[in-house]
Structure formats: structure tokens, C-alpha cells
Nucleic acid binder design. Sequence first.
RNA 1: GCCCGGAUGGCGGAACUGGUAGACGCAAGGGACUUAAAAUCCCUCGGUCGAAAGACUGUGCCGGUUCGAUCCCGGCUCCGGGCACCA
Length: 823
Amino acid sequence: MDLKYSPTDIEQKWQRHWEETKTFAVTEDRAKRKYYLLEMFPYPSGRIHMGHVRNYSIGDVVGRFKRMRGFNVLHPMGWDAFGMPAENAAIQNKSHPATWTYENIAYMRGQLKKMGLSYDWGRELATCDPEYYRWEQRIFLEMYAKGLAYKKTSFVNWCPQCETVLANEQVEDGGCWRCASPVTQKELDQWFFRITEYAEELLEWTDRLPGWPERVLVMQRNWIGKSFGCEIDFPLEGGTGAIRVFTTRQDTLFGATFMSLAPEHPLAAELTTPERRGEVEAFIDKVKKTERIKRTAEEFEKEGVFTGSWCINPLTGARMPVYLANFVLMEYGTGAVMAVPTHDQRDFEFAGKYSLPMQVVIQPAGETLDPAAMTAAFTEAGTMVNSGRFDGMASEAAKEAIADYLQSEGIGRKTVNFRLRDWGISRQRYWGNPIPIIYCDSCGVVPVPEKDLPVRLPMDVEFTGEGGSPLAKLESFGNVPCPLCGKPARRESDTMDTFVQSSWYFLRYCCPEFTEGPLDRERVDYWMSVDQYIGGIEHAVLHLLYARFFTKVLRDLGYIGCDEPFTNLLTQGMVIKDGAKMSKSKGNVVDPNALIDKYGADTARLFSLFAAPPEKDLDWSDQGVDGSFRFLNRVWKLVHDRLDLIRDAGAPELSALTPEERILRRAVHKTIRKVTEDIEGRFHFNTAIASVMELLNTLQTAESNTPQGGAVMKEALESMVLLLAPFVPHISEELWQRLGHGTPLSGSAWPEYDRDAVVEEELLVVIQVNGKLRSKVTVPVGTDEEAVKSLALADEKVLPFIEGKEVRKVICVPGKLVNIVVG
RNA sequence: GCCCGGAUGGCGGAACUGGUAGACGCAAGGGACUUAAAAUCCCUCGGUCGAAAGACUGUGCCGGUUCGAUCCCGGCUCCGGGCACCA
């Protein structure tokens, strides 16, 4: 038998065992409590990095622990396999994105297997597989039928060099992330998912996800951005019609002195008088060229232009000049803003620049504002002035009163507004899921019939890197007969955003080979929701919001029964080295392969779990890795050193234990309790591991030449090995076997602590004088309060501090401390 | 600007409900073993004073509540993250 710990050999041995016996394959089993554990699946970029190692190590602890506790654990893995990098690699290497992607998947799968993760590999899926994306196309068509997928013209980020649309996150400093050319705005016909339809529900449920980190929920609430206010109509002067605005500050309506429209506002052209036309058009042109990238500008200057037209303040009757303003967004509210320069900072700056009138309508307490003397808008609450019948009211109350008044007069109505916009999913890219739509000159927009699904990505495509989407140029793909009339028609050449695939993959894991539809409801209902989801915080809004949206859509389409996809969410921190996130450019990358080759997967896992709690950033330390390796060697050595001692031992005879053995056994069972609580309640793996290290230190010094010594040590070692199993499964399996077990540890139950064993016989009581530690005494359990007090008052270390002083009070916390108050 | 986090030894971190601050690990120093080194094992390890016993001090800063505060409250400083013309 090997006396030296040799991770490579034992890790291969057990990985093979788990694979051959399909240890982690699961099916629905109604006799057991189910537990769906999921880590965010990786993009197959080439090789795994330390962030993956950490993410999947955390998940594996939970999975193996729950499994040992008797849960039916679903723990799947797959690949987020569509995306731009594959296409770029194809352009560079003159190959095909599919080749690159599948090679990466094969390599990374091997890496994950080397980590010994407890996945049910039978459920593996790749989103670029037609057997996956075909169902997504079907879901798209059902959403289209219900009006949840629709096409509209909108402004998008456009790279003129690459001739393609870029997602917001693909724009860096106003330029294309690939070629750095300046990104412009282009108006394009694009497909959208109507996520705004679910804004209210998505928001409401953020209060019903107690298992999510609060900051993620806050970010989602901010992103959805619900606000309460009014829509108000401002009649146009000398004409018919009105300008409708949205405002949350209807209490300032009497102070509205001009009107600001978004440059894209449909009324902009109509309201522009002939003599103003030249100036207005120049302004619109300028805004179109510069807008959106304004995000990166620090303080974008407020600019505008007068249209030449006027509208009327419905409450004051005052004439208000209608301006176009660069800071007014067409996408939010109605694209028109009533300008109240005294009580809105943007309007204040704008009015100053163009010398527009100002009227104070809210006064702060104990102060009288003078528009001429103001240096900034007053945006807080106060008392209403210059507001007719509302004068003297508190502005907060006036909000409600004015809203009611507007509604009764038919001038406006109360409304809510959301910041959330519909999700633009069109991508002018090849390596994505084709949108299953055909355009026919006679029949219009025609869905691809279900019998023709999937619309497959053609493989005979050249990747030159020039001229936009290869799909748009491929005649054999684009030219199709219209499914309705049979006349020549054109296929949609855009593909779907890759976030669409990751919005429902967790559902497909429940029934990955199902061929009759996207989802097998019975099986999905058994497994869903995901009991624990684990991944990076960077997806706090995008992926996690989209997945929630999709879950609700699929529920409403009748595919599933649950409202929310993820009951509990753990967002793990980044892996840091030398004070910075690991990156090639910083040269601080740790390669998982090298780490595993040198120390084994168990050490890699152990260190990434021990160095910090999961949600915090993890500071990588090569010496720390050495320490984890040393610990495993000590575990290995201790078990082997004690093998002779425990060979013939049975269960300990509790009544025959010596005091030392009782103390040792107490340490064992307290460790079981501690590790169990740390994993189960808090995911504090670092402290769980620390307590096993303490136990090891205790066991190493234990003398065991008594009759029950072997039995107590055997129980101790077996418990230790079981407790370590979720963290370092390979060495645990091997030691379990060497301890004489014929059946593998992976089939064993998690140890239960003995409630009698953990009860202390003696307690350490701390003695304080005026809150300062002065002495400690050990007393038998059950010593009454008075006895402890008199012990404390007579303690020789305490006496000097109370002699000659009046004892005012003695506070006694049973079993913990005595505090003597003197003065 | 607004909204969240966070700040504890040389370092990563622990202290669960207000009750021994610094568990566990790393680094460092000393020692044992060795011809020597590595590995391993043992000891010390917040600061100041002290030969020691011990005393004082100490959880970003200032103040408060309390018998007692890393923990609760008020006011700051710094760091990290998110949102940012959202009407």
C-alpha cells in the first residue's frame, strides 16, 4: 500500500470509478427530496480559468454534501456555446466557428473532469447544438404568436468597419471592441422580446426572493426603474393637438415655463416653423451623430434649439416655447418633458443657457427663493407657492392633489413608468441561433412552419471578417420559397442574442434528450426551481433578469409550473492575484492545469474554498496552496499511522471511555456539528475546513494505548474523512477504502453528531471587573449562579482590583462570564 | 450626484444573538532531526513597558448607549461595486 500521498494516481482512479458506475446520474425519484444545484455554465473559450475552478468547487461542495444528506441531487453541466469569439477565431484561423467551439468544449470537458466534479454528465448540452436551438426557435415562434416577440425600428450601436450591430456591452469608450472604430447610431429594423410586459411582475417578485443577495435585487429593481407620476397634455398654441409629457413632479406644474422634446420626437418636424427649419435640422443631425456615446462623456453639455412653436401650460395658461433638447430621451416616458427650471437641475442649466423664464413654485422652509439669485435648482420638498388653489400645501401632498385635479379636469392622468426597455435580440452575426422568420413580398412576415424547424446554421460559410453577417450574403440560406404562397422569399439573416440560450438552459437540463418539444413538463416540474444557483455577480442584471423573464413566459405558455427559476442565489467573488483580477495582460494568471498537475485537484479545490468565504474576492497565494497540500499530506499520514491501531476496533463502548477519550470524542462530534452547520446554513467553507484542521491537530497529539483508544480513533478518523469528502473527494474516497470500507464513500451518509457527546462536563467562566478580563475559572456544568459569583469575588487575580472598592453590581451570564462592577 | 457593500496582526481570514478579539492557514523567527539541504516535527508570534509575573493599549477616525461594543446608534475618512441627464 502506498504510504506517500500521490494525488495523480488516486484522482484518476476515483474519477474513473465515478464515471464507470455513473455515481452522479440521477432520475426523478419521488421517494427522495430533490435538490437542483446549478452553477452558471461556461462559455467554451478554450480553457478553464481560476474563476471556473472556484465557481465549480463551491458548487461541488454543496452537491456532494446534499447528496450525502440523502437528497436526490441534480447537478448538470453544459456549454454556452454561441458567441462572437468563435466567429473571430474562425476569421483569424480561416476555420469554422463550430470546429473551434467543439474543440474547446472537448478540451474543457476534460479539464472539468480532472477536477472531479460530481456532474451528471449524461445531461450535458451545448447551446449551439441544433437539438438545443431548434426548441428555442419554437419558443420564439410561440412568443411571436402571442406578441411577445416583435419587430420594430430602433437606434442601435453600429460599427461601420465591421458592418454589424454591437451590443451595448461590446462598445468600449465609444468604439468597437474589435477594431476600435467609432461606433455610430443606426436606425434598424430589429427583433425584440417584450420584457416590459413583465416589468411589474419581475419587480414584484424581487420582494419574494429571500434567497437572493440583497444587492442583486436592488440592482434589478433599479434596472426595472418603476416610477409613479402623471401624463399631462399641453395643448399646442393656435392649433389642434397637444404634447403629452410624463412627469413625477406634477407638483411643479405651475412652474413649467417651456417644453423640451427629444430630437427624435415625431412632433419635432411638424412643430418646426419654416424660418427655424435650417437650425433645427442641423441640431437633429448633430445629436444623431453624437448621442448614446454620451454615456462616456463626463458632463455632457445641455443643448437645444427652439422649434418656433409654442404650447400652453394647462394650469397657468402661460405660453411655453417648445424646444428640442439633447438630453431628452425618446425611449423614456413620452419623449417630452415639461421644463421647470427652478426645480430641476437640467432644466435650470438649459434655461440659463437660453435665457428662458423661471418661476418658483416650491419654497423651502424658512427661506424665500428668488429665481434671479438661484445658482442651482431646488429639487426637494417644500411649501407650494404661485400655484393657485394649491398654495400653502406641502409639496408632497400637492403631488396627490394636483394629480387628482388633472384627472378630474381631463388634462392628465396618474400613471406609472418603467425604465426597463424591451430586449433587443437581433444580432447581425453568424454564430448564433437563426431567427425562424421568412419575409415574403406578398404575405409579409411569415413564421417558419414547425415542420421545417430547426432553421439550421449552414456550414458552407466563409469567414472573411468583412462586410457584416455571413448569413446575409449567403444566397443558399437566404433564398427560400414563402411557406404560405410558395413565391420566392427571403429568410431573416439575423441570429438571436446569446443571452436567449442561457435564459432557459436550466430547464432543458431537466429533460435534455426530450424530442417531443422544448420541455417535458412532468420532469421539469419535478426538478424546478433551481434550489441553489451559483455564479459571478457580473450577471446580476442581464442574465439573471432575462432568465427570470423567460421562466415567466414559459409558465404562461404552459411549459412549466414555476414562477421563478432560482430559489437561492450565491454570487461568488473574483479571483485576485497581486491585487488585481487575473488577466494575461497583468501576467498574474494561474493556470489550473499546472496547478492540478503539481498538486492534484483536491489541493486546488481545497485552497480555493479555504482562502475566503465564497461571496468575497479570493486572494490567490502560491504559499497558501502549499499549505493546503501540506494539510492533505498530514491527513494522509495520520490515517496511515493509525491503521494498525484501529484495525480490529469496533464502535466505542461509551461507558468504558477514559476522560481523555471522552474529550477526544467530544472534539470529533463538535467538529461534525460545526462543519454541518457551516456548510448547510452559511456556505462558510473556510471555517468548516478550519475546524477539520483543528480536529486533525487534536488527533495527532492524542495518546491511544487504552482499551477503547482504537475504537475512539477509528470513529474520529472515519468522521474526519467523511467531513472532508465534499471538499476533497478523491483523497477521501481513497482513505475511506484504506480504512477498510468495501463500498465507496460516495454512497455513504453524512455523519450525525451525538448530542450527548458534545455536552461539556466543565465550563470556562470568564471573570471581568468593570468589563475588563481579570481571570478565568473552570467550573463543573450545573454550578449555580451564586456559587460562580462567590468564586469570582474570591478569585486571587480579581481581589486586587476590587479591594477597597464598593461592589455595585455583579452580572452573571450563565456558563459564560461574571462581570463585577466596582466604583 | 444617488444606491449598496466593506475597513480586524506582516498577509488571507475567524469571532454565529452585545459577553475571553485575532480560530485556522500563510509568512517570519527560534529549536529538533540531518554530514548538509529538502521534507517533517516542536516552540514563539498585535503593539508598548517589563528579566519575569504582569500592566497598559488595541478591530479606519470622533462621539454616544451599555455592567460590557469588532457587533447597536449619530457624525466623519478611505476603499470597492452598481446606477447615472430616467423627467
